[in-house]
């Protein structure tokens, strides 16, 4: 009896096939997603805040002899080296921990492109924040030397700065690696602290008590290979140490993590 509305495809709309999603659009949205929550915004802001606080502390507490640009950049560099990997971790793990991946990977089924966009955005922010830190450090140095009545010393050269940027980029890549490997915010952050504090401790113990370890230590200890970047220009052998340890501790786990991201079920 009931007149059912069971229409044929009579008034089907004329449709054109949409074009593919360009990479620039993914970069735009991924960058936006890093800033558009309170947590994300303050994480970014904390870079600037930490730089200002570290400069102020150096200005007040460092002796006159240490009122140099290097003191400022070292003081600022320490908190930033912790914050940047967190940014890289959260940009990846948020999709799983907040379950936004359900929407993200439905709108862009090519997960590799989304992850690549996240990596590029993280690195872009990392490098940009290093320049912000450079500027804040310069202001601090200028003010500090004036207030403390010493000559302004600009003892950081471009090579040194480039090496510090590289060290921070490596730190972000470690965060990114843990992000794709663990895919859970809390887990990856805990993983980061285990990775950067527990493993070096174990290596330190081995170095102290096991003779055999001393010979291979430079080729397995990623942390100590990276430390060189902060101190001076690495020698050829030290670059080799960095390359080999990086392969073991960064590149291989990253590849495993990426493979898991591509195959894992998004729930």
């Amino acid at each position: 009896m009931s007149t059912t509305t069971a229409p044929t495809s009579a008034h089907r709309r004329e449709r054109s096939t949409p074009g593919p999603i360009p990479m620039t659009r993914l970069l735009d949205t991924e960058l936006r997603k890093m800033f558009d929550t309170r947590a994300g915004f303050w994480l970014m802001a904390s870079i600037g805040i930490a730089a200002v606080l570290a400069s102020a502390a150096t200005m007040l507490f460092a002796p006159d002899s240490a009122q140099t640009y290097e003191s400022y950049s070292t003081a600022i560099g320490f908190p930033i080296a912790v914050i940047l990997p967190m940014i890289a971790i959260l940009s990846v793990t948020g999709e799983w921990s907040q379950r936004t991946g359900l929407t993200t990977f439905t709108l862009v089924p090519s997960r590799g492109r989304v992850i690549a966009a996240k990596l590029l955005c993280s690195l872009g922010i990392g490098v940009a924040s290093m320049f912000v830190a450079l500027a804040i450090g310069a202001v601090g140095n200028l003010l500090g030397s004036t207030l403390n009545g010493v000559d302004t010393s600009w003892n950081v050269d471009p090579t040194q700065f480039a090496l510090i940027v590289l060290a921070n980029v490596l730190g972000m890549l470690i965060g990114f690696m843990l992000g794709v490997l663990v895919r859970n915010s809390a887990g990856a952050i805990v993983g980061y602290f285990v990775y950067s504090f527990m493993i070096p401790t174990v290596f330190g113990l081995l170095w102290t008590f096991q003779d055999w370890f001393r010979d291979i230590q430079p080729w397995v200890d990623f942390q100590s290979a990276q430390t060189v970047l902060f101190d001076n220009t690495p020698s050829g052998e030290q670059w080799a140490h960095l390359g080999v340890t990086g392969l073991i501790w960064l590149i291989v786990p990253t590849l495993i993590g990426l493979r898991m991201v591509m195959r894992a079920e998004v729930k």
Partner: peptide, 14 residues
């Protein structure tokens, strides 16, 4: 399955 810290408008904008 949405980030609780985003506004509805922001989610739609993304």
């Amino acid at each position: 399955a949405q980030h609780a810290g985003r506004t509805g408008r922001e989610i739609l904008t993304i």
